[in-house]
């Protein structure tokens, strides 16, 4: 379960690995919030989310786009992502804290999640996906 930022001149390219699809989705969320805010601590915020899409890749983009919407309008920063993906349906429990200018200004705004090159690939020991975030 991990994410790493790869070289990309214009945007942010993240490689996310996980033993399961649930881990991929959880770490993709973690990676995006890392780009936007830096450090995060659980401080009592909990939010539930359910989504459905035609395929896993679209589900991943819809889920990350929904997180962008929620963080902006609800002023929340999430640090943990409990994900349950069954087929092309997702239910998530997100935990985090209220946005705090003093501690969360070290990152940058993610404008969108790109479809470019996005493919969840099955490997011997799990899954990997590369995601471009427009910043």
């Amino acid at each position: 379960m991990s994410f790493e930022e790869l070289e990309h001149t214009a945007d942010v390219l993240m490689r996310v690995r996980g033993a399961t699809i649930n881990e991929i989705f959880a770490d993709a969320g973690r990676a995006m919030f890392h780009v936007m805010y830096g450090p995060c601590e659980e401080r009592g915020i909990e939010r539930r989310l359910s989504l459905e899409a035609d395929n896993l890749e679209s589900l991943l983009i819809d889920y990350l786009s929904e997180l962008l919407f929620i963080t902006e309008v609800e002023n929340t920063v999430f640090c943990t992502f409990d994900i349950d993906v069954r087929g092309n349906r997702l239910s998530a429990v997100l935990r985090g804290e209220p946005f705090d200018h003093a501690r969360h200004s070290g990152g940058t705004i993610v404008k969108g999640v790109s479809y470019f090159g996005l493919e969840i690939v099955k490997e011997e020991e799990g899954y990997v996906v590369e995601i471009i975030f427009d910043i």
Binding site: D54, D62, Y115
Partner: peptide, 17 residues
Amino acid sequence: RGLGHQVATDHLRALEG
């Protein structure tokens, strides 16, 4: 700002479909 980002996200999804 966020309004434009959301318009792009919403319509990209619709056009992709």
